[in-house]
Design a protein around this nucleic acid. Structure first.
Lengths: 341, 341
DNA sequence: CTGAAAGCGCTTACAG
DNA sequence: CTGAAAGCGCTTACAG
C-alpha cells in the first residue's frame, strides 16, 4: 500500500482553485482573497498537506538549506560555534547540512562539492585556510560563504571572529610578567591564523617587554588532549615556565601532563588557554583563559550569511558588491582562574 | 552576469547524445557503449558539469540525505555518535541534515517535520523518548528511522545501543562492595531508558548484594557540569559515599564539587561514570567508567539505516517487515581509573 | 545500446 | 485576486 503522496495538485482540485493559488497561500502571498485563503487552508489541514521542499527548491532555486563545514564536531570549540549557527539557522527556517572535514583538504573539497551539488543557499566554513581547489569552488559559485571563528588565506571571504593577534599578545604579556620564557602552542605555524595573527601577537608581546622572542618556544600541535599531554617534555626542555595555548584540549593535556610530571601549576608553570570552552573549568586547576563569545561567533556568522543570501537574491547581478568589509570582529576578554599566579 | 548553469541538456547536445544517455553515464549505468561513455565523459569534464542533486531528488524520489536529530551537539556523548554517523554517511555518499532538538519535544517535532519536508531518505534519532506527535510523524511516513544511543518509548523503532541495564547493574555492584549507600544519578526517572533499564539495573545490584535499595538515593539531573556540581550537598546529605552517573558532564561536576567541598575521591567517595567520553580522562582524578563504543554506535546506526533505506526501496510494499529484531546491542565494558578504590 | 517523452511537485511570470 | 502554462533539471519506463 504505497501511501499516495498528497500534492499541491490534490489540494488545488479539492479546494476548487488553481495550483498557483494554493502556492500563494502556502507561501503567505497576500494577494489572495480571505475567503479563498480560508478554504484552501481548510483543505490543507484536512488533507494534512506538506509541501515538498525538494520540488520547491527546484522550481524556486532556493533550498533554504545551508552547508556547514566543521573540522571536528567533537571539538568543543567548533561544537559551540555550531550550536550558535544552528539556532539562528532554525530561527530563519534554514536547515543545515553539517559535514566534518577532519581538517583535511581532500575531505573539505568533497564536502563543499557535495554541498553545492545539493544547491545549498550558503555555506559557513569553519576551519583554518582553504585549499586552492576549495577556493576555486567558492569563486565559481554564486553562493555566499562566510568563515566562522578563524581567518583564512582567502581574504575575499567575509569572516566572523575575534582579534586573535591582540588576544595572543595580551595573554603572552600577562605571562611575560612572571616568566622569562613563555611558550606559544598553536596548530600549524604556516596557517594564516597563526602566521598572520598569533605569532605576530606573540612577538609583539615580547617586544613590548623589551625582550627578544625565541622561535624555538613556538610549538605546533594538533587539537587533541593527547598531543598536549605528550608535549610536556619538549616544552620543559626549553626552560619555558609558562605557555599560551590556542586550543583548550591541548591546554588540558599539557596541564595534566605537567601535573603527572610533578610540575605544579601555576607555581612552577603558568598556563593560559585560548577558547574558554567548558574544558577550562573542568580541569583542576581550572585554566585562566582568553574568553570568546563562542556561541555568538556562530550566531553572527549565520546572521551575516542570511543577509548575504538575501542580497544575493536582490542584488543578483548588481555585482557592485564592494564587499569591502563584511568582516566582523567580536570582543574577546580574559578570565583569571587557577592556572596563573 | 548570471552564470549560465550548465545542465544535463547542455552536455547531451554537446555530446550529440540524449539526456537519457548522459544520465546513464553519470549514474554508472553499464548499458552504455564504451565509446559513447568516453565521449560523454569528455564533455562533462570540459564543461565541468555538476549534476543538480535537487532535480535528481525530485525525479528519483531519493535525496541521498539523512536527517540526524541530536539533543545537544555540545555534549561529547552525542558529538561522538554524530562523528560515527557522519563518517559512515559520507562513505555511503549521504549528506546529513543535523538539527539540535535541545531535548525538547516541541523542537524535535519541528525538526522532524522539516526533515520530512526536505524528503530525507532516513532519520537517525538521538534522544530519550519521543513525543506522541513525533511518533505519529514517524509512523505516517515511509522513511526508516533508527534510534542511536538510547532506548525510547517507541519500541517499533530499531535501535543501536548498549545494555544499559546490565551496565548500570555492574557499576552499582562494583560500588556496593565498599559502600553501603550508592547513589544513582540519571536524567528523568520516567524516561524509558531510566525507568526500564538503569533503575532496574540499579535495583538488581542491590538485590544481588542482599540489600534493600533506597529510592531517595536516585537523583535526577540534566546533562550539565553545573547540575552535577550543584548536586553535592543533596547527595552528601543522604549519607551516600559513592555514585554511578549516567552522564560524564554531570559526573565531572560532581567530582569537582566534591573536591571543592573537601571530600576526597576516591577515599571518601567513589564515582563511576557512564559514557567514557574524553571528559573521563581529563578530570583529576580521572574517572572510572563504563566504556561504550561511542563512535561505533553512531557508525552502526548509520549502517543499519542504509540497509533499511535500500530495503525500503526494494521491499516497498512488501510490508512483511517482520521488523522483529533490527535492534543491535553493542558490547560495553568497564575501565578502572582513579575515582574508585 | 540509445532516444523520445512523460513526469517528479513545485514556482513564476504573464494575462486577465 | 486568480488561473493556464511553461519551466526548474533530472530519472524512468517504454520502444526500438
Amino acid at each position: 500500500m504505497e501511501k499516495q503522496a498528497i500534492t499541491i495538485y490534490t489540494v488545488a482540485s479539492e479546494a476548487h482553485v488553481s495550483m498557483a493559488t494554493v502556492s500563494r497561500v502556502v507561501n503567505g502571498n497576500p494577494n489572495v482573497k480571505p475567503d479563498t485563503r480560508k478554504k484552501v487552508l481548510e483543505v490543507i489541514k484536512r488533507l494534512n498537506y506538506r509541501p515538498n521542499a525538494v520540488a520547491r527548491g527546484l522550481a524556486s532555486k532556493k533550498t533554504t538549506t545551508v552547508g556547514v563545514v566543521i573540522p571536528d564536531i567533537t571539538n568543543d570549540y567548533f561544537a559551540e560555534l555550531a550550536l550558535g549557527i544552528d539556532d539562528i539557522a532554525t530561527m530563519y527556517k534554514y536547515n543545515m547540512i553539517l559535514a566534518n572535514s577532519d581538517a583535511d583538504d581532500k575531505n573539505a573539497l568533497q564536502v563543499v562539492r557535495s554541498m553545492f551539488a545539493k544547491q545549498v543557499d550558503g555555506i559557513i566554513f569553519m576551519g583554518h585556510d582553504v585549499s586552492d581547489d576549495v577556493k576555486a569552488e567558492f569563486e565559481s559559485s554564486n553562493v555566499p560563504v562566510v568563515v566562522a571563528g578563524s581567518v583564512t588565506n582567502d581574504d575575499s571571504l567575509p569572516v566572523v571572529r575575534i582579534d586573535y593577534q591582540k588576544a595572543t599578545q595580551e595573554a603572552t604579556s600577562k605571562l611575560l610578567k612572571n616568566n622569562e620564557k613563555v611558550a606559544l602552542i598553536i596548530g600549524s605555524k604556516s596557517s594564516t591564523i597563526n602566521a598572520q595573527q598569533r605569532i605576530p601577537g606573540y612577538q609583539k608581546a615580547y617586544e613590548d617587554s623589551q625582550r627578544q622572542y625565541d622561535h624555538r618556544l613556538i610549538f605546533e600541535a594538533h587539537d587533541s588532549y593527547e598531543e598536549g599531554y605528550a608535549l610536556v617534555d619538549r616544552i620543559l626542555k626549553t626552560g619555558a615556565t609558562a605557555a599560551f595555548l590556542s586550543d583548550d584540549s591541548i591546554a588540558a593535556g599539557l596541564l595534566n601532563g605537567l601535573h603527572d610530571h610533578g610540575v605544579k601549576v601555576p607555581e612552577d608553570f603558568e598556563i593560559i588557554t585560548g577558547n574558554d570552552t567548558k574544558l577550562a573549568t573542568i580541569t583542576r586547576p581550572m585554566m585562566s583563559s582568553i574568553t570568546q563569545p563562542l556561541y555568538d561567533i556562530g550566531a553572527v556568522s549565520m546572521r551575516l550569511l542570511t543577509k548575504l543570501m538575501s542580497e544575493d537574491q536582490q542584488a543578483a547581478e548588481a555585482d557592485a558588491e564592494q564587499d569591502g568589509n563584511s568582516n566582523v570582529i567580536l570582543q574577546h576578554g580574559f578570565v583569571e582562574r587557577q592556572s596563573t599566579k
